[in-house]
């Protein structure tokens, strides 16, 4: 049961060893340092993303999912946030050991990112066409005419209706969904190999969410682009992700192919999370509730962070962080009773 140490490097998916992963995060730690204290926000997080694969980093507020994304993108607010341990290698090169100049070149060109709030991410005083074209002129060295033509193509590609005529419109003249499409167009302008989407649809209406996710999915598979989908939405994950990295209080508690978490969840947290989603059976019994609230990162003790809310918690859970075990090929869980949970469907 204790055969895998938590920080053991190595491929998660059987057979993936032959081809190096697009992105490999190893034992990543992120701290926030203030005068008074250092708070671990991300602890010992490892996962990888292959080309063309959509990996969902799933978690609630304070789980460290956004910080993980920012660390990969290299846009942590330093200070107060620092990478305290681990490595992030992109196509075999360690991003953390690179000079800042090379890192900047990778950002946008090879790894790019879209954010939840598209209104504040776009500059209100420039037209969207100008903003998309500017990326191409500044980073791809295109001339004005060429950049404009390419920008129109890109806006067309992200399914903005009548793209050519809307180039001259300003961000506030677009709906939230259309702005998010503009953000996607800017993010893929330089044809990156990896896209990080931080809660890309959370601010949008449900009927629009699915449309945006479908566009993202199509672009990723057309370009063989890796996608890290940072989200709290189990529903979005179930439909669009290939694999899930479930985070709780800064740690990965379970990682598996998407169906795995729904069919044989091997961590009490993922089980409880699935149980708390309303389903027809709950009408009579009431929803299954996880007591308490996600912990303050300052208050996480030495043991399993979920133990105080866990119905299976034992004394050992409070002593040390449970090691990560492999319950099935490509399915890992950081729980002492992971195997029992996985077998008990």
């Amino acid at each position: 049961m204790l055969d895998d140490s938590p920080a053991l490097p190595g491929p998660v998916l059987a057979g993936a060893a032959t081809e190096p992963a697009l992105l490999e995060v190893r034992s990543l730690g992120v701290q926030i340092r203030t005068r008074r204290e250092s708070i671990d926000i991300v602890r010992d997080v490892s996962f990888e993303v292959a080309r063309g694969e959509t990996v969902a980093v799933l978690g609630e507020s304070g789980s460290g999912k956004t910080m993980t994304g920012h660390a990969i993108m290299g846009i942590l607010d330093t200070p107060p946030a620092y990478i305290s341990s681990g490595s992030i290698s992109f196509q075999g090169h360690d991003l953390l050991k690179m000079p800042e100049r090379r890192r900047r070149d990778i950002r946008g060109r090879h790894i790019s990112m879209i954010f939840q709030d598209s209104l504040s991410a776009l500059n209100p005083v420039f037209s969207v066409g100008f903003q998309v074209a500017e990326v191409l002129r500044k980073r791809a060295g295109m001339g004005r005419r060429e950049a404009n033509a390419r920008a129109a193509e890109l806006l067309d590609l992200v399914e903005i209706p009548n793209a050519r005529n809307r180039m001259r419109d300003y961000p506030h003249e677009f709906s939230g969904g259309m702005r998010q499409r503009v953000m996607i167009a800017m993010a893929i302008a330089l044809e990156p190999e990896l896209l990080i989407a931080d809660e890309p649809t959370t601010a949008l209406d449900v009927t629009i969410q699915a449309q945006i996710m479908e566009t993202l999915q199509r672009l990723c598979s057309d370009r063989d682009m890796g996608l890290i989908l940072i989200t709290h939405d189990l529903g979005v994950v179930s439909e669009f992700a290939d694999r899930i990295i479930l985070m709780y209080a800064g740690r990965v508690v379970e990682s598996c192919v998407t169906a795995g978490i729904f069919t044989q969840a091997a961590h009490p947290y993922s089980r409880a999370l699935l149980d708390s989603v309303p389903q027809s059976a709950h009408r009579e019994t009431g929803l299954n509730v996880i007591p308490g609230a996600p912990p303050d990162p300052r208050e996480v003790g030495v043991g399993c962070a979920f133990a105080p809310r866990c119905s299976h918690a034992m004394d050992q859970c409070l002593v040390a962080v449970p090691p990560t075990v492999t319950v099935a090929p490509g399915h890992r869980s950081a729980c002492l009773i992971a195997r029992e949970l996985a077998d008990h469907v």
């Binding site: 699915a210 994950v237 179930s238 729904f262 069919t263």
Partner: peptide, 23 residues
């Protein structure tokens, strides 16, 4: 559009009616 987290027994996402387009 309410992406339900319900899965069929074989692990594939549950069947869904057609989506609407546009805003």
């Amino acid at each position: 559009s309410v992406a339900t987290a319900e899965f069929d027994a074989d692990g594939s996402p549950a069947k869904k009616p057609p989506r609407i387009r546009g805003e």
